[in-house]
Amino acid sequence: MKRKLLGIIDATTYHEDLEDLLTHRSLAALPFGGRYRIIDFVLSNMVNSGIRSVAIFPKMQYRSLMDHLGSGKNWDLNRKRDGLFFFPSAIIDSDFNMVGSFDLFAANMDYFYRSTQEYALISNCFTVFNMDFRPLLDWHTHSGCDITEIHHQDGSSLELYLIKTSLLIKLIETRHQTGYSCMKDVVHDMHHGYTICHYDYNGYAVMIDSIETYFSTSMNLLQKNVWKNLFLAEQPILTKVKDEPPTKYVKGSMVKNAMIANGGLISGTVENSIVSRGVKIGKGTVIKNCIIMQKCQIEDNCYLDSVILDKDVKIEAGTKLIGTEKSPYVVRKGTKQGALMNS
């Protein structure tokens, strides 16, 4: 597998419905599940499937993504041959809000020309799933397909495509003649003459394209059946490792059905919530159905229900914030929220 399949992750997508969480980062770098980033899922899937050459194509706001991925060491991609490649887009004004933009790939053709892998797997960066791509490659080669599009069990496209590297190069080189701008254009054209196949993936998969789907998918992690289907011992979801002490729970605090990352201090009540690294929750504070990102500080006697706090947010004492399951209350990164601001 490691000599057969090339991994390509398109990290250019921007969903306007996630704007409040994407002002300082790309969608690929969006924190998820307390200690992960969205891109960790597809990247881990590729590595677990034996892929040893992965190219990531971001567009803007990619500093946090580069900081998270580093050399690829945490995914065993810091290697002399193949490994992790990062190709930021130099075409700022173009709209790359599509998976597998041929203009995006064309700016880095040397990577494709030099690749030794016979097949290429093109993926979006915003799907939460755990999939072994090896059965897909076997099925694709034995079915005589030119392009295979992966579908979820409900029939919707997951915007993942398997294609021969040589055919991908041809599609990129002839994009101006054919009018194809991305993989979706090719798959949906009835007159190209290629054999297009659909491969059904029956596991858990959610595409994060709005605040609502981000919030609901995060909350679903607290369900045992979802957790067991997503986080598999034989196919671990890898992420950047940070060595921090365990979270401290002050006497009188209470935690129920929650995910709590390291380095925090819990003095209040946390229920049905996800709390990231280094979070401080004050005495008398109640957190319910919330996503609290890294290094947030929530002072004493606050009440938060259905709230998303981005990184480095400070909530002043006595503050009450309430959202809903369909419309969670979002506080942007690095801001301060106080009781007087909500009165």
Rank of each mutant, 00 (worst) to 15 (best):
L5S: 02
H15D: 11
H15L: 11
E16P: 13
L18W: 08
D20P: 07
L22I: 08
L22G: 10
L27S: 07
A28N: 06
A29G: 13
G34W: 05
R35N: 09
D40E: 08
V47M: 06
S53W: 11
F57S: 07
M60A: 01
Y62N: 15
L65A: 09
M66G: 13
D67E: 15
H68R: 10
L69R: 10
K73L: 03
N74K: 06
R79H: 10
D82G: 12
G83F: 05
F87W: 11
P88I: 01
S89T: 01
I91T: 10
I92V: 12
I92H: 11
S94G: 02
D95K: 03
D95Y: 00
M98W: 08
N108P: 00
M109A: 13
Y113I: 10
R114W: 04
Y119Q: 03
V128E: 00
V128L: 05
R134K: 07
P135K: 06
H140C: 09
T141R: 03
G144S: 03
D146Q: 03
I147M: 03
E149C: 05
I150L: 06
H151W: 11
H152W: 10
D154N: 14
S157Q: 03
L162E: 05
T165M: 00
E173I: 14
T174E: 13
R175Q: 15
R175Y: 10
H176A: 11
Q177I: 09
G179S: 10
K184G: 02
D185G: 09
M190V: 02
I196L: 01
H198D: 01
Y199P: 03
N202C: 15
G203Q: 06
A205P: 14
S210P: 09
S210Q: 09
T213S: 15
Q223G: 04
K224Y: 04
W227K: 14
K228D: 10
K228F: 00
L232P: 03
L238Q: 07
K242N: 00
E244L: 12
P245N: 09
G252E: 14
S253H: 05
M259R: 12
N262W: 08
S267I: 02
T269V: 11
V270E: 00
N272Q: 10
V275C: 02
R277S: 07
G278R: 05
G282V: 05
G282M: 02
V286W: 12
I287P: 01
C290K: 07
I291M: 14
I291N: 07
M293D: 13
K295N: 15
C296G: 12
E299R: 13
D300T: 01
Y303Q: 06
K314Q: 15
I315Q: 00
L321S: 04
T324A: 05
S327F: 01
Y329T: 00
V330L: 07
K333R: 14
L340G: 09
